[in-house]
Design a protein around this nucleic acid. Structure first.
Lengths: 236, 236
DNA sequence: CGTCTGGTTGATCTAGATCAACAGGAGTGG
DNA sequence: CCACTCCTGTTGATCTAGATCAACCAGACG
């Protein structure tokens, strides 16, 4: 709610991995003065599908889930955005409404930058535009790859692949030195993200446990054999 | 081979639908002087997956197929590019090698613009960059949608959807006023494009014929009931 | 004329969806 | 405190779209 929340952009660690790394000190000062940092509870929402796009959101900490409503009206999780990532930038660049809903998955701090500011910065600094272009290119590639994966890989393989992605982001070692994750999302969301039914995910999890790769207890995952797991991800 | 081939950029009809519509007369003159138009036979190739990206290709006429080699080494068609479309621009912008192979599907005229020229134009005219950004955004969205489609729609539905896309590009009315297409691609490529096996495509085609929606004879498609077909595409 | 490649058709198999029952919390209300 | 419902996840039984395997056919081409 208050300015202190996100601290200054200058001290923001995630800045260097975000598009804003293209800015010089003067521009950063401008950004710092007008950005609106705000902390959100899990379950609240940043914007809804169909809303006008008034600016972009920069994730300082926490986790945002991007959901999309299908024809039948049930929302499916399509991607996750963590610290340093910018949310809603594509709708902004396209000057269109938001194509999806952004929901807070973990307690998060997110800075809002309103349209006019982004425009000004874009005009002042062509490098910023290039950063956005890079990001868009990366997105396009990611979608291309995921499409490819979803027709070639089995559900279990995709689950393992997701686990590794989550491990990179949320993994830690517990007191016994075991590799762990506390999953930030429900099984249903995992199912949606992977493109499978919740039942199939449940069964795949059982299979993974039976093979001794990992133990699941609620949202806690304890890896038993990370090497073997990684081995399974290697394309045949 | 020769400069005459593609004619002048000024007279190029497809220019207005391509990124080059952002250029002014002076810039267009530059482009016109250095572009290398060339005509290609079907079956030849523009560049191969892994090749360095030395510039971009602008399709003046004909049809280009983008293929990608999967882990087993068999190539699958992932998209088609027609007149007015720019090929290889993403690899160019990413400054990386080509991620796919571009194969000529129909006799085509394609203009090559080498890297240095594109760079110069991009520096001179910021609007050109924006056009590329737009294109990338469109691509990303398309991949997103196709991913969505492939998990929600059945093979037959995707086939019908592809037929409509091809109809928009290659459709014509024959002497009896019937809607027709001469398919530019093989059944196997249709299968790859849709993400299904050739056998399934064959069966889906039979089903479409049995329902009286269209007649297939080799690569010639005669639509029997375009309205009913479009009706089937409507999301339930 | 054989040989190849692309396409069709039939028979079988399987990953995963769907339907259905059920079990453990977590509230909520009495 | 228990009883109730709601919600998420697990498990079992069944069904089905589509893959896979195999035979076969037609045109193209040496």
């Amino acid at each position: 709610m208050t300015g202190e929340l996100g601290g200054s952009c200058f001290g923001c660690q995630v800045r260097h991995t975000s598009e804003w790394c293209a800015l010089n000190d003067a521009e950063l000062t401008l950004l710092n003065n007008v950005k609106v940092p705000k902390s959100y509870e899990a379950g609240t929402t940043l914007f809804h599908q169909g809303d006008d796009c008034d600016g972009i959101y920069c994730v300082s900490s926490g986790l945002i889930g991007i959901r999309r409503l299908d024809a039948d009206g049930n929302s499916t999780l399509v991607r996750l955005c963590g610290p340093g990532e910018t949310v809603g930038y594509r709708s902004f660049l396209k000057k269109s409404g938001h194509r999806s809903t952004a929901e807070i998955m973990l307690p998060s701090v997110v800075c809002f930058v309103r349209r006019a500011t982004v425009r000004t910065l874009l005009e002042q600094n062509p490098n910023l535009g290039l950063r956005f272009l890079d990001h868009t290119l990366k997105d396009a590639e990611e979608f291309e790859d995921r499409h490819f994966e979803s027709v070639t890989l089995t559900v279990k393989a995709r689950l393992l692949s997701l686990l590794m992605v989550l491990y990179e982001r949320f993994g830690y070692l517990n007191e016994n030195g075991e590799s762990m994750i506390d999953l930030p999302i429900s099984r249903q969301d995992i199912a949606a993200l992977i493109g499978a039914s919740p039942e199939t995910i449940s069964r795949s999890i059982s299979a993974v446990q039976d093979e001794g790769l990992a133990q699941f207890k609620g949202r806690e995952v304890r890896f038993r054999n990370l090497d073997a797991l990684i081995e399974q991800l290697r394309p045949a």
